[in-house]
Nucleic acid binder design. Structure first.
Lengths: 129, 129
DNA sequence: TTATTTGCAAAAACTTTGCTGATAA
DNA sequence: TTATCAGCAAAGTTTTTGCAAATAA
């Protein structure tokens, strides 16, 4: 974005590995806690900067679901999520991306449609009990 | 939520009127600027508190699209939005709510599905020029 | 060597909260 | 009258940034 050739730093590798190792969709500070178990002296700013970097590189994705904090997903493929309205957990949803939506909206709204984001909301099995 | 019988204050009325009067989807501070033209001594905290109140009452809705700030919509009916990736503007999208999605997800993911949110992303006509 | 990255601290951006006086009913 | 609400200021939460030291290549 603003710099020259990116470097592969240890922090960067560990952040990517840890994010890819979980199926949850952690916020930056949750991932920070996780990464600190391997790199106790890492800073939260480094986690934020690298999550931004990895997102720009297309290696992970930033997901902006409801709630206050942004979350990150080790799977860069576009897919949909469901969020528990009780505990806030975010899971993946098994539904093919609906390509036809973008085309149908392009025809009606005057925007150049680039993509869409679909998020389901519900109560997870644990919270349902 | 925590109080007894709500009152109809002047601030509350003006905030609701102003939000209903625009088709944009202002953030709290944008609406604050707008409302201040009629109530110069209102505080941003009052705007935040009343937007929360009006949302709880189902008179408006809080929309949590991409970007940093939450936005508010004077139309409480569920509908979809499209956001310009260039200027950040949010418009309504003319597409019926896809009820079938919730049912199909209920069958596959174990969640009790309550609803969904669909947001399109694109470039608005002005930014396309 | 040297340009990029880190850690730290400070700032920024956005939102919520405590308190006292004002006000709707 | 009185419980709710507003305004103000302060604090809380999340994210970003400036800078000097560390480091990948």
């Amino acid at each position: 974005m603003k710099h020259g050739k990116p470097r592969i730093t240890h922090q960067r590798e560990v952040i990517l590995e840890e994010l890819k190792s979980v199926r949850t969709h952690p916020s930056a500070d949750e991932l920070y806690d996780q990464v600190r178990q391997r790199l106790p002296r890492i800073s939260l700013a480094t986690v934020y900067r690298n999550l931004e970097f990895l997102t720009d590189q297309g290696l992970v994705q930033k997901i902006e679901v409801g709630g206050r904090q942004k979350r990150f997903d080790g799977n860069p493929e576009e897919h949909y999520h469901i969020r528990c309205l009780d505990c806030g957990k975010v899971d993946d949803v098994d539904l093919d991306r609906i390509q036809s939506l973008d085309k149908s909206i392009s025809r009606t709204c005057g925007y150049k449609v680039i993509g869409h984001r679909l998020e389901f909301m519900g109560i997870c099995p644990e919270c349902s009990k």
